[in-house]
């Protein structure tokens, strides 16, 4: 199986005034193509730092990170931007949609920074991304006209539109109720079944059980790594939650 993400002896230090914070103290980790990995851990365990580095938003202090065969430590800021645009899709806890901008324009956004995509193709791809998250009838709605779950789906469509090798989700269900959380997880599972590789940060154990593999961080190192045995099928879970339960 192809290694999409390979992390070798990775360390990350922050300098806050004169104090050095060791956020990551030597992490080795591999994510293969087609995996659905959930990263877990308490606050301050280093999981967010890890995701920032996987997302090429930050560079490691020490160690090696190879994304889809490219070592990122030698890349410039602009190269990293290009890499994020081509290879990665981001889903955030707070959705981060542009306000007063309709769903279609929001989804088109990553392609605006890809000069090889022409206007017509861009609109086509944005439309099909919205269709794949089941929002083809909400294309011209603005974020404030959409529910939280719908907004997160627009954000997922946005992360899909550039056909990334990995989708990175940072507490993507953190702002949603249980039912909507499983709706989103069902969508992720569906995407994963179609072959998308997903790395998901969460602190909810139930949500983590939707993934295929869990990695638990503690104090900047990997505490435990395990395949999920009793994986939750989010769709079945959804059916078991009564509608009025929320």
């Amino acid at each position: 199986m192809k290694k999409l993400i390979e992390i070798i002896k990775l360390k990350k230090d922050y300098y806050v005034g004169e104090v050095t914070v060791h956020a990551l103290r030597g992490v080795d980790m591999v994510v293969n193509e087609g995996e659905f990995v959930a990263i877990m851990g308490a606050s301050g365990s280093g999981k967010s730092t890890m995701l920032n580095i996987i997302g090429c938003l930050d560079k490691p202090t020490e160690g090696e990170y190879i994304l889809d065969g490219i070592s990122i430590s030698s890349l410039s800021k602009n190269d990293l931007s290009g890499l994020r645009n081509q290879k990665l899709g981001f889903v955030f806890q707070t959705y981060n949609l542009l306000p007063r901008t309709n769903a279609l324009d929001n989804v088109e956004l990553p392609l605006l920074y890809n000069k090889t995509v022409k206007t017509k193709e861009r609109i086509e791809r944005a439309k099909s991304a919205l269709e794949s998250v089941g929002l083809s009838d909400r294309m011209h709605h603005k974020p404030n006209q959409l529910s939280g779950g719908q907004q997160q789906r627009v954000a997922i469509a946005r992360s899909l539109v550039n056909d990334p090798v990995v989708i990175l989700a940072d507490e993507a269900t953190g702002n949603l109720d249980t039912r909507t959380s499983y709706e989103i997880m069902a969508l992720f599972q569906e995407l994963n079944n179609k072959g998308k590789t997903i790395v998901f940060v969460t602190h909810e154990p139930d949500i983590a059980r939707c993934a295929t593999r869990n990695i638990i961080f503690k104090d900047g190192v990997i505490l435990r790594e395990s395949e999920v045995k009793d994986r939750i099928n989010a769709l079945e879970m959804l059916a078991s939650i009564p509608l009025e339960a929320d």
Binding site: L57, K77, Q86, N96, L109, Y113, R158, N162
Partner: peptide
């Protein structure tokens, strides 16, 4: 918004 634009590939 600026952070988002940068995250999805907007260069400085």
């Amino acid at each position: 918004e600026i952070g988002l634009r940068m995250a999805i590939g907007g260069k400085g």
